[in-house]
């Protein structure tokens, strides 16, 4: 062994020791990082799973709420439709009952009163003629007054129903 090799031996040892230490440190750091990564990955996975569970539960809850809401709406619709059917039937009956007035003993007096109203509103020159369903229709120029019995009966029935605070109770 030459002299210079002897002299360099401590340097070599020092370098080799430093390299070993670095390898050890790198190994430890890698181990720590791997561990940390694994912990983070596990945490992420748990978080994702929890989020997915929560999303699934929320979606299920929303879907159930929607189905329940639609069922309630359908039930409400049935009730309202029945109320509307009864309302239409009531108005029809009032209109039919009004048509029956034509056969009554007071009908000529009623027509006379309606003709009077026509002349009051449209003037004495108004042409008054009997309406097909009873009552009268008057016209003068571009103006018209419809006092036919079906129309009057319908308007009266609708007004009563609309004014009532709760006609269904």
């Amino acid at each position: 062994m030459s002299r210079w090799e002897d002299e360099l031996a401590p340097v070599r040892r020092a370098l080799a020791d430093a390299a070993r230490r670095e390898v050890d440190e790198l190994g430890e750091a890698t181990g720590r990082e791997t561990e940390a990564l694994a912990v983070r990955a596990r945490a992420d996975a748990t978080e994702l799973l929890d989020a997915a569970r929560a999303d699934g539960a929320a979606a299920g809850h929303a879907a159930a709420a929607l189905v329940a809401a639609r069922a309630r709406r359908e039930a409400h619709r049935v009730v309202l439709a029945e109320r509307e059917r009864l309302r239409v039937e009531l108005v029809d009956r009032v209109v039919q009952a009004a048509a029956g007035l034509r056969d009554g003993p007071d009908y000529p007096a009623l027509v006379a009163r309606l003709e009077e109203v026509c002349r009051e509103r449209l003037g004495p020159m108004a042409e008054v003629s009997p309406a097909p369903g009873g009552g009268v229709v008057a016209a003068r120029g571009t103006r018209r007054l419809d006092l036919s019995l079906p129309l009057l009966a319908e308007q009266a029935a609708l007004a009563v129903l609309e004014e009532a605070d709760d006609p269904w109770s």
Partner: peptide, 13 residues
Amino acid sequence: EPLDGGPPIAGEP
């Protein structure tokens, strides 16, 4: 005007 198939709303004008 009703969209729910029910009768017109009743009450005071």
